[in-house]
Simulated scan of single mutants.
Amino acid sequence: MMLQKVLCSTLAWFVLSQSRVVAQEYSWLLFNNTLLMPASGPKLTASADVPCFPALGFKMPANVPSSLDGWWCDSSTEYAFVGFSYEITQCQSRSQLNSEFADIRQRFRGRYIRLYGACDKANYYNDIIEAAWENGLGVHALIWFGWTDPNIWKIRRDSIFRSLLSNPKAKFITRVLQFGSEPLYDWALDPAQLAEQIKAAKVTLAGLNIPVTISEMAYGFQKHNGAADILAVIDVIDAHILPFFASDASTGDQAWKNVQNDLDWFVRRVGGRKIWFSQNGWPSVTYPGVEPNSPKAVASIAEESKYYALLDSKCSYLKTVPGGGVGWFAHLYSDYQEPGYGILDVNMEPKFDFAPRTSC
């Protein structure tokens, strides 16, 4: 089933408080073909004026809700900048996760993290869930294939399934489960096998209402003649947008034509499903494995900054894309996670001013 766009209906009422009238809006969301209506009373949230997770200003409830009814924000509000890819290969401690997730939420106004890489510490996704809950962040979870052990993805799959099925907070934090990062481009599995794994994951997680997808470039699909069998089974689109590697790339502020080309490729094929730019950026340095395909492509902090400024300038357009608009992640949170792609450098200092819009 697909994560659908909202059925656009808004319920409003007015509450008199200290001689003011406060308008509150609640959206109706079609989630996996189930109409989720606003919950009443304290079951939904401790914040009366921000009624959905993970909207900015939302206050996490003291207790885990009894139902997902009314929990997730309308997908049409989740456009523009939504957060960061966050690499967990270092197996960050709970205290580090808490500190950095708080920074993502409070300083950068992030609503989500998108996991990248893998930590094979037992039950590590529980640490992610707890830190995300503590800081009001949703998560695009990831089953990482990697490039060394051809079977370790199965262990990672089973581990994250255990956390998702046993942790009562998991379904309130996990917005999407990604079955691989560029699994088509990397030939992690034959597309038919990958499609079967996606379908099996959806059955396993059916009681949690967690959409399942892959995180992939348009080119990854194109390598497999469009990978129609994959497009048929994924619930949402987590698209990799990496225009630095285009054959005609030059500077970050000139990247829109390549972004548009890839976005258009998805829009034409996904039937109105929600689109996220999950792995999305422009590097500030090059090194083996991060090398351009165009002699004119410039990697620098200035060009990285220009690229994100370009995306921010397209806020109004991205809001109109079918499926509830495009929500984009910056790739990555810090250069300590992967050189050149961080918004912060290895000393955790901003490489440039970064305050993109979260709405427009």
Results as ranks from 00 to 15, higher is better:
155 I>T: 15
207 G>Q: 07
304 E>H: 14
76 S>M: 03
85 S>W: 01
199 K>I: 14
298 V>A: 08
275 I>Y: 05
301 I>W: 06
131 A>T: 05
24 Q>R: 15
351 K>C: 09
300 S>A: 13
216 E>Y: 00
169 K>F: 07
106 Q>I: 13
175 R>W: 14
343 I>Y: 10
351 K>S: 05
285 V>T: 14
134 E>Y: 11
358 T>L: 09
160 I>D: 01
269 R>K: 14
24 Q>M: 14
346 V>Y: 10
47 S>Y: 09
168 P>E: 02
132 A>K: 01
196 E>R: 15
330 A>P: 08
121 K>M: 12
118 A>D: 04
51 P>N: 08
222 Q>P: 03
73 C>R: 13
103 D>P: 04
317 Y>R: 12
66 S>L: 12
251 T>G: 04
200 A>N: 13
340 G>T: 12
297 A>M: 09
101 F>E: 00
140 H>E: 00
135 N>L: 08
223 K>I: 08
3 L>Y: 13
336 Y>L: 08
255 A>C: 07
268 R>M: 11
287 Y>C: 08
98 N>H: 12
96 Q>A: 14
104 I>G: 02
266 F>I: 06
97 L>R: 05
108 F>H: 13
89 T>C: 11
8 C>A: 10
234 I>Q: 15
43 K>L: 11
334 S>C: 12
346 V>H: 06
76 S>V: 08
73 C>T: 15
271 G>A: 08
259 V>K: 09
